[in-house]
Write a protein that binds this DNA or RNA. Structure first.
Length: 517
DNA sequence: CCCACGAAGTAACGGCAGTT
DNA sequence: AACTGCCGTTACTTCGTGGG
């Protein structure tokens, strides 16, 4: 029975620095000779005992604390450089002995040696700050890192591991600590991307109750790590501390079940592409990378919902007939009824705090735009011991959280959706009133959760993006408006089922670095 | 012109659970 | 047993708007 490793990609403060390219970017690319090298976060190697044990590495991305997306599977380790083997080479032992004055057989042993050697120094100089101690400790580990790095560089040259004609260590030469970096963990014989997003959900997600969505797998009773980039299945250690025997066995059972479920996912051929779809760095990819900019990206306003609301209001107010088409082609279809516009159209921004307010003789159409933020509103938690005693019942549709047999939390979400609905609903007129909530495709807001949520119709950026794209194709007039062309480009990001920001950002940086070497 | 308020942005902080 | 850094929460800041 082999182990499964779930590894998180595109995370960490390291990536915030423009010059740093996450090493994991290589996972989604083939080398120039068509091989798949995999880099396992965070440092590119595993603890000694895992080598030779792992069947499959699932490359994942965090959606949130309890929801991870599986992007690809890498199986059949063909080749790896084991850090401890490198350190145990005779010449490396000599180097380490000379510097550390101690025999090192295990990578993890560096810390211990440091502690022993510096015991007296730190006892005598208690004032040495902890921070400084940490820095010094890191320098010791860096020696081991350096030896592994040197060995990898040799291998990269002899095996010709290149992307777009450049050695991987050349490409990443602007990375912080590139001189100490590890570049690959192993070479995989098979690499398959998922056909469509596969999600695994752990405890704490509201999706549990209706987890019959496509490709969502619930790993009940298992916690996904919040800090670590790795989790191994079967899970290595279960702490028995503070646990009753029954809880302990239940947790063991849950973990076994989770492991079996992951195996099912891996073996389910329907979930994975038939071919190895990882790309090679070629001229076409470089070209796409250069063209892929839009002005909102440049001014870093791609995530700003106010900007999108302003632009939508601008185009609908100023392009004659555009809103008419939009209502016909998109809103009517979403509402499953014909919305017929009549008379002069007025477009308001932030009227009564409502993002977009369209009004003509016969209709009021409200669009609440949510890109990053959630629905605002107070969450009122009512806790009552045994609802019968208090004479209260839990209304249907509310989120009911059962803490124990007689403790029930009733979560009421008194939301801005309700507020806006009431504002418009209370207007005494014969106009038809339609409410829409516009969100990116990756940001699935559960309307049922909110008061009056059901009065809103979900509208996705994909709908709006496709509409604008089609309009641009059909109307030469629109093509001349470069703001409209760029705005449409900027919407594409939010029309994706993945929030691919880091994924795409890393790809962009990677290709940029290759061109600059 | 002042002030209150809403909403988005931001900084700080504690919890978490695997890793060394 | 100490360490780590993400994540959710909370409190605070900033900005714009609209009422008085």
């Amino acid at each position: 029975m082999g182990k499964i490793l779930l590894n998180v990609m595109y995370a960490g403060d390291y990536l915030k620095e423009e010059n740093n390219v996450g090493h994991e970017v290589i996972n989604m690319f083939k080398t120039d000779s068509g091989e798949n090298y995999i880099y396992v976060n965070p440092y590119g190697f595993l603890a000694d005992e895992h080598y030779g044990q792992i069947d499959t590495v699932l490359l994942t991305r965090r959606i949130n604390a309890n929801k991870w997306e599986i992007l690809a599977k890498a199986t059949d380790w063909e080749y790896a450089l084991k850090p401890d083997d490198i350190l145990n080479k005779k010449e490396n032992q000599e180097i380490l002995n000379k510097i550390l004055k101690k025999e090192i057989h295990k990578f993890s042993f560096c810390n211990q040696v440091f502690d022993e050697e510096n015991k007296t120094i730190f006892e005598e100089n208690k004032e040495i700050a902890n921070e400084e101690k940490q820095k010094k400790k890191l320098r010791y580990r860096a020696m081991a890192h350096k030896l592994i790095h040197d060995e990898q560089v040799k291998e990269i040259e002899s095996k010709g591991i290149t992307y777009g004609g450049k050695y991987i260590y050349e490409i990443l030469n602007k990375n912080q600590n590139n001189n100490y970096a590890t570049y690959f963990t192993f070479k995989a014989k098979t690499f398959r991307e998922s056909k469509e997003p596969i999600y695994i959900l752990a405890d704490g997600t509201i999706e549990e109750k209706n987890s019959n969505k496509r490709n969502e797998y619930f790993l009940s009773g298992v916690n996904l790590p919040k800090q670590s980039f790795k989790i191994y299945f079967p899970i290595n250690t279960i702490k028995k501390k503070d646990e009753q025997e029954e809880e302990y066995t239940n947790r063991k059972k849950a973990q076994k079940k989770a492991y079996e479920k992951l195996q099912e996912i891996i073996n389910n051929e329907n979930l994975w592409k038939e071919e190895n779809t990882s790309k090679k760095i070629d001229d076409k990819l470089k070209e796409v990378n250069r063209e892929n900019k839009n002005f909102l990206q440049i001014i870093k306003k791609e995530e700003d919902e106010l900007v999108f609301s302003n632009l939508l209001a601008h185009f609908f107010a100023n392009k004659k007939g555009l809103f008419n088409e939009f209502v016909k082609e998109v809103l009517s279809k979403k509402a499953k009824k014909a919305i017929l516009l009549k008379g002069e159209l007025n477009v308001f921004r932030e009227k009564e705090n409502i993002d977009l307010w369209f009004e003509d003789d016969d209709n009021i159409i409200i669009i609440e735009n949510k890109i990053k933020s959630k629905i605002n509103g107070r969450i009122e938690k009512e806790m009552f011991i045994n609802d019968k005693e208090y004479g209260q019942t839990i209304e249907e549709g509310k989120n009911e959280i059962k803490k124990s047999d007689n403790e029930i939390f009733n979560e009421r979400l008194n939301s801005q959706l309700k507020k806006y609905f009431n504002i418009v609903d209370n207007i005494k007129c014969r106009k038809a009133k339609n409410f829409f909530l516009l969100t990116p495709n990756y940001n699935d807001i559960e309307l049922v959760k909110y008061d009056e949520g059901n009065s809103y119709i979900k509208l996705y950026y994909e709908d709006v993006y496709n509409f604008f794209k089609n309009q641009l194709q059909d109307q030469v007039e629109y093509q001349k408006d470069l703001y409209m062309v760029d705005f449409t480009k900027a919407m594409k990001k939010h029309a994706s089922p993945y929030n691919h920001d880091m994924y795409e950002e890393m790809e962009r940086r990677f290709v940029k670095c290759i061109e600059q070497v």
